[in-house]
Design a binder for these strands. Sequence first.
DNA 1: GATTTCACGATTGTTAACAATTTTTGTCAA
DNA 2: TTGACAAAAATTGTTAACAATCGTGAAATC
Lengths: 239, 239
Amino acid sequence: MSIKSQPSPENGVDIPAEPGENFIVERIYKAVMEQRLAPNTKLSEARLCETFGVGRMRVRRALLLLSSQGIIELHSNRGAYVACPDKSEAHDVFAARMLIEPPLVRQLAQGAADLNLGLLTDHIALEDAARKENERTEIIRLSGEFHSKLAQVTGNKFISRMMRELVTRTSLIVGLFGTSEHASCPDDEHGRILKAIQARDPDQAEELLVSHLNHIQNGLDMDTRQQPQDDLTAILGAG
Amino acid sequence: MSIKSQPSPENGVDIPAEPGENFIVERIYKAVMEQRLAPNTKLSEARLCETFGVGRMRVRRALLLLSSQGIIELHSNRGAYVACPDKSEAHDVFAARMLIEPPLVRQLAQGAADLNLGLLTDHIALEDAARKENERTEIIRLSGEFHSKLAQVTGNKFISRMMRELVTRTSLIVGLFGTSEHASCPDDEHGRILKAIQARDPDQAEELLVSHLNHIQNGLDMDTRQQPQDDLTAILGAG
DNA sequence: GATTTCACGATTGTTAACAATTTTTGTCAA
DNA sequence: TTGACAAAAATTGTTAACAATCGTGAAATC
């Protein structure tokens, strides 16, 4: 909301003078998306204050926003913890995605010519590059972002928000229950979905997407869990 | 989040000792849903403080939450205003609903037998009653809530949240651009949709829903606007 | 040795005063 | 009357001190 958080031009150093709450939200959001912040990790106010060099008010506002997005959970008098979806929530997330994404890609495949599919082709390129370089966190983040960008090309901000939330949640779930390393988004399925969209083939696009989502689900084992991280500054400071 | 906001048992009076931020959020949310709070109405902190008998902190937290749900907008140093969707946003809302709701009712019509459709039948009864009594605000609110409840019967909290947000936004839009009085949700279309669901007829359910949404859209005139309300205490105090 | 109790430290929740900004009001001149 | 300008009032943003709560660990008791 406020504009102060931008790095001011007269500021010689690269460090922004005053990170706004949006900055903090984005930083934590990104860390969660890249699975650098494990579920159940505690986010203490004091820690975040010194990490971002900000007063407690900003941190608290950021935490409230994050909790309203379901990224963290606030326990009264006990602090903020990275959300830790259970089996039932995981089921709901995939059910919601199965409901929304098929008609979404179908619509894209039928879509008007003025759709900016370049966003997606560029993204696939990024994914390929990251896979070649074997950059784990980058691969994970881009894997999720592809689905967000599917929504973005509709240009509809509500659809984008919904998908963003579902994808974030999925990232938490995969981090919690994922088994094999490549489970997040196998091979080049994204590329094939995009090709089906470009070929204006709604049926195939939908089919590819559905089996893609199934692959992700099948890579989950609902009985294994990770333990919480703890060195926040290292995790949030650089990213 | 906190539990304090419940009216305590030992409290003889009906007035809750300390309304939590959830209470404030719900109250304002409801006022918006019933179109008692017009778009662009200013919600000043001091006003809300005395209306709810609460400190400024609670009010600010509530406003932040409401803004994250898109119900109000926060302008830096200028305060909070009830969201005022423009033509483009209105288009996006209906596009999003057209994407989500058809597969949703389709799924309900195909749905497992354990779905709690009683929630919907009860709701239709309430709508009929309100229509008979000619209670304007009640009719408006129930009209929107029907669609929220469609999502609720899936038992999926993500789908419910999405629909709730879209329905709220729709209420703002209808309030802003709606022309005729009965435009909100014509006749007994909800009842017929429910019947199609009960009859396990996905095609008809979807068709009825799509035409229903079209009716709502057709009742809008994107060139007329209402002016802001101002007596907050009267509006929020009783509802 | 195990369990309960209590007190301390650490963390979160709240309040009130202060600072900064915007909006309004009043004045003066054209 | 209208417009610009300046002071004042009202409103929002921020900070820091204070209060309340929770977790931990030591001491005491069984």
